[in-house]
């Protein structure tokens, strides 16, 4: 994945636990068009272990999943068509 991808929206979900992190991610995705890119920041542990799988099951694509210095994760999601 090249790093020049255009991010259409960002949502910081530091400190937001399951399942509300998925709810907020879905709300953020609902505001985007098909194929647009959302970046969410998720806590380490259950959030990063659960949210990406849930998004894939809904047909979205995970473009990148990168751990940040503070241990949280930056997740790049491409909204389903």
């Amino acid at each position: 994945m090249n790093s020049e991808v255009i991010i259409n929206a960002r949502k910081d979900l530091h400190g937001v636990s399951c399942p509300m992190n998925m709810v907020y991610t879905k709300v953020a995705l609902a505001e985007l068009g098909p194929g647009q890119i959302l970046e969410v920041i998720l806590d380490d542990g259950p959030p990063i272990n659960n949210v990406p799988g849930s998004l894939k099951r809904e047909g979205h694509e995970i473009l990148r999943q990168q751990q940040c210095e503070d241990g949280s994760w930056a997740l790049l999601i491409r909204k389903s068509d």
């Binding site: 509300m20 709810v23 879905k26 099951r57």
Partner: peptide, 15 residues
């Protein structure tokens, strides 16, 4: 969002 979270989480309901 909290009240309706269990609906929003459903793929076939959602936001």
């Amino acid at each position: 969002l909290n009240r309706y979270s269990r609906h929003i989480l459903l793929k076939d309901v959602g936001v």
